[in-house]
Simulated scan of single mutants.
Amino acid sequence: MKPILIKNTSSPNLSFTIEERIKPHFSVPYHFHNEYELTAILKGRGSRFVGNHISSFDNSDMVLIGKNLPHHWHNDKGASHSNEEVKAIILKFDADFNGVRLFDLPENYQIQKVLEKASSGLRIVGETFNKLVSLMQSLLTAKGPDRISLLLKILYEIAVSDNLEVLSNQNHIPANKSNDYDNDRMNRVYEYIMNNYLEEISLSKVAEIACMNEAAFCKYFKKRYNKTLMQVVNEIRINYACKELLKDDANITEVCYQSGFNTFSNFAKTFKKITGTNPREYKMKIKKLEK
């Protein structure tokens, strides 16, 4: 499996698209496209893949995706089938608006620069996240010239924000320029991890899937993702554990083993390293917030 090209089509009466999605799960596969994309996750939890960056996401995740940058949001295993399991607003636009290069105008220089940075994926947090969600919600119902002004306002807020995190490192190659064999190899690894992270993950098995010896694979994976294989697997497992701990009847010890860990001490140590708190404190903190 490799990231697939998705060709987006918009209405002839609209120069870009924005939509609200409320679904049981993310249904779009690992993919890329020629448009820029701003995705705001308002409800949902799982793992996010952007270029060569892998991390978890929750109810306040927002990323600006550059052109031809492979990406995918993956729900946690065991997610419920509620119609509100995932809620997101997705904005897609091109640099060419029916022949008009809007972002090339001198007044839009700052926007042009931030779109260049988006080639690596930009996570948007803090106060900027809240501002952009409000603007995106307004854009959902806007008509006529208001759509263009709101789009420019959204991009300008990103361009002048200090609340940005670059996701994919310099080793990332755009999907339309990367080697097909390399894409296939890493996507076989990706598929194996996402199908088996709640079970034992064998380095030898993963290296075999990548058609490499263990030492070469470890070096290759670390260079590509800036993390070891087990760091990535543990982040995905802890994210799953966080979701399970939200349940009223959750038993922390049971969640430990359900999440793929063999010992409670390793689970607790990894949990605190990734979340900054231990599982019990995390569960108590969430319960207080719900009151």
Rank of each mutant, 00 (worst) to 15 (best):
Q112F: 05
Q112S: 08
Q112V: 02
Q112G: 04
Q112Y: 07
K113M: 14
K113G: 03
V114Y: 02
V114E: 07
V114G: 00
V114W: 00
V114K: 08
L115W: 06
L115P: 02
L115Q: 05
L115A: 00
E116R: 02
K117Q: 13
K117T: 07
A118E: 04
A118D: 00
A118W: 03
A118I: 06
A118H: 06
S119K: 13
S119P: 02
S120M: 08
S120A: 07
G121M: 11
L122I: 15
L122M: 14
L122P: 01
R123A: 13
I124N: 11
I124T: 01
I124S: 09
I124F: 03
V125C: 10
E127H: 13
E127I: 13
E127P: 04
E127L: 13
E127R: 12
T128F: 11
T128P: 08
T128M: 13
F129D: 09
F129I: 09
N130M: 12
N130L: 14
N130I: 08
N130W: 09
K131T: 08
K131H: 11
L132T: 12
L132E: 03
L132I: 15
S134R: 15
S134W: 06
S134C: 05
S134L: 15
L135D: 08
L135R: 13
M136T: 02
M136Y: 03
Q137K: 15
Q137C: 12
S138Q: 14
S138M: 12
L139P: 06
L139C: 05
L140T: 07
L140A: 05
L140N: 01
L140R: 00
L140D: 01
T141S: 15
T141M: 02
T141W: 01
T141K: 06
A142W: 03
A142D: 05
A142N: 07
A142Y: 00
K143Y: 03
K143P: 06
